[in-house]
Structures are given as C-alpha cells and as structure tokens.
Write a protein that binds this DNA or RNA. Structure first.
Lengths: 197, 197
DNA sequence: TAAAAAAGAGCACGACCGGTCGCTTACGGG
DNA sequence: CCCGTAAGCGACCGGTCGTGCTCTTTTTTA
C-alpha cells in the first residue's frame, strides 16, 4: 500500500496548487488527473468525492504551513527573535513556496468565508490553531508576558501586515512590499515590548 | 431606452452579490436571470458575454466603493478627521453594505490576483485609483504634509488593518474585530502625525 | 398612431462537470 | 511464487454551463 500513498500525495499537491490559483470548487478533477498523469476515474480510488479531496487538501496545506512558519521559527529563542523569524517565514510562504499561484490559505479563506459546510469548518478550526499559536508566541515577546488582550491586539496587527503584504505584492504588483510590512511589524513589536516593560 | 437601463442595473446588482459570495467566474447566468426575473437569453440583450458582465460588475462595485468611502469622507475636513471617517466607512462597507456576501472588492482581488486578462486589468486600475486617493488623503494628516514615502507606508498599514478586520470578522467569526482595527489605526495616525510635526 | 427599435422568451447546441461501473493490470504479503 | 487486493483505465451517465438562433412582446420615437 506504499505506492498508493505516494500517488495520493501527488494528487493533493496538484490539487492544492490548482485550488490556490482558481479556488477549491473550481478545481477540475480532469485537470488534476492530467497533471498527475492519471485518468479521472483513477482519482476516485484515492478520494470518495471532490469534497473529500478538498478536505485532504486543506489538511495538507495547513500542516505544511504550521511546519514552514512556526516549526521553523522555533529554531529561534522564544520572544522577539522567534516572532521576527515567523513573520519572515510567513511572508516567504506566500512569496516563494506558492509564488505562481498565491498563498492557498488566503485563497481558501476568501472563498469559504461565507460558504457554510464541513470544508469551511475544517479550515476555520485550523486557522484557530494558527491564531492560538501566534498569540501564544506573541505573549512571550516581553517579560513580564503580555496580557491575553495585548497579545490578541498584537497578533491582529501581525496578521494584518501579512495580509497587506500579500495584497500589495500580488494584486498591486508591488514586489517590494516586504519592506513596509517588515518595518511596520518591527515597530509594532518595539511598542508592545516597551510598554510597562 | 430607459427601461433597459433599469433592468441592466438590476442584473448588475444581482450579479455583484453573487460574485461577492461565490466569485466572478462562479456566477451562474441562470441564477442571475432567475433572481432578476428574466430568462437566461434575456440577459444577453444587456451584455454581449459573461466577461462583459464581469467588467460591468467591477465598474459598478468600484464606483460605489469610492462613493461610499471616500466621497462620504469628504464631508469631514481634510486630515485626521477625514481619514478616520474613511476608515470607519471602509469597515462599514464590508460589515453592512455587503453583510451577507462579504466585500466584493476583496473577493475579486483574491480571485483575480493570478488570473491575467482584461478583467484583472480593470480591477487593478481601479485599485490603483483607490490607493492613490488614500495616499493623497494620508499626506494631509500632518502639517507639513507627509512625504510620499511616509504616506505610502501609512496607507499600507491602513489597508492592512482593513484586511485584518475583514479576516477576523468573516473567517474567524469575531464580531468585535472593529475595536482592534480602529485602535491600531488611530494609534498609527497618532504616530505619523507626531513625527516631525 | 404606425413604424422602428429595444427587450425578452424559448429552444437547442457543444463542452465540460463530478461521479459510477466493470474491466484489467500490477503490486505486496504469505 | 501465487493470489488477493490495491491501483488505474475507458466508457458512460445526468446535469449545468455559456452562448447562439429565431420569434414574440413591449417600449420608444417620429
């Protein structure tokens, strides 16, 4: 049962890229099959339905995101250094890992935010994990730790700057969007670290 | 030719709401026709093709956005008051005007950011108008005016907080996202106003 | 008010959609 | 090595998609 698992991953890979570019529902099983080198019916040996494939795509992408951003950031000591690393990796996630099709997580959010159902539920659950992770790390930016409310506000801005970066870069064609995003984030870290330090 | 114009507007209205919810390409002409109370072929008396309708939808939505946010903000004196008003209207645009389906502009951006073609070109052109308007107003937040670079950085943050607000509110279900967004924006205005004031 | 023009209905088309079924092939554990 | 099973193929289904065609109804205008 080893070969099947490898094929399944190749399918998810192709589906994820297509979903990031066109949207989860706009993924064409025929196109995915062609990229992977399978027939359309061959896909159904790995997934019961398109929705099941969408769920698997979300799980794969979210697992990779956590690994790429937060696991990598844990190489740095907790606090400011780790947050800066996470922020850089977060920007890089959209800039390089998904350079051709854009960050799939953001694409999924935009598509699913008003589409009730199990697919959105799964995504929302993973996003809450991301958020809790980010807020947890944010608290440790200062000694004594930030309050929960402070950390939430700081994470809100962190998340906002990531979104602003993607917006400026992908839609407005501003390839230098990294600079204002990083500057804004660093300045924000300075402020929350300084208050009542 | 007066009745036709009214029908055309009703079509665009229905198409815009559907496009905001499902995406521009996912708009079904059959569904739009049913909402408007027309037959599918009747639509083609008002638009040569689906793409032509998409272009008209973008034009309508963008015109309404400029009016709702920036024209309304001009009731306030230039500077901080006007920017605060614009920010509030911007949040309200997503919260109330499009409460059921989400801000169509953001939806279009997410869908079109990697889809070359005349539809994206039109959207990008309008977004640049939005951006230029915002930056122009931002310069006047201080006397002497902000430099272009300062205003760009400030507008980046303004835009980011709007995006962060929509993200928190729509995807994470945080109905109180307005508070951190407004607090972050006001604090940012304070800082850019104070520097070398 | 009559003619011209616009608005719209009805229908059919080819393409593509997700999904099923039965068949064959190839792999993997005993 | 052998056999069960996983993997994959091709044909096909019902349905929806955007769009063209012709014909009728309504509106506008001269």
């Amino acid at each position: 049962m080893r070969k099947g698992e490898a094929t399944r991953l190749r399918i998810l890979e192709a589906a994820a890229r297509q979903a990031a570019a066109r949207g989860l529902t706009a993924v064409s099983l025929a196109d995915v099959a062609e990229v992977v080198g399978l027939s359309k019916s061959g896909l159904f040996k790995h997934f019961d339905s398109k929705e099941a494939m969408q769920l698997a795509v979300i799980e794969l992408v979210c697992a990779r995101f956590i690994d790429f951003v937060w696991t990598a950031a844990r190489e740095e000591p907790a606090g400011r250094a780790r947050l800066l690393r996470a922020f850089d990796r977060w920007l890089e996630w959209g800039e390089h890992e998904w350079a051709d099709c854009g960050c799939p997580v953001n694409a999924f959010i935009a598509e699913l935010d008003d589409q009730p159902g199990p697919v959105r539920d799964l995504l929302r659950e993973r996003l809450q994990v991301f958020r809790a992770t980010g807020i947890g790390e944010m608290r440790r930016v200062r000694q004594p730790p930030l309050t929960e409310a402070e950390a939430q506000a700081a994470y809100f801005q962190m998340r906002s700057f990531v979104l602003g970066h993607a917006d400026a870069r992908r839609m407005m064609g501003d390839q230098d969007a990294r600079d204002p995003a990083r500057a804004a984030f660093e300045a924000m870290l300075d402020r929350v670290s300084a208050v009542a330090a």
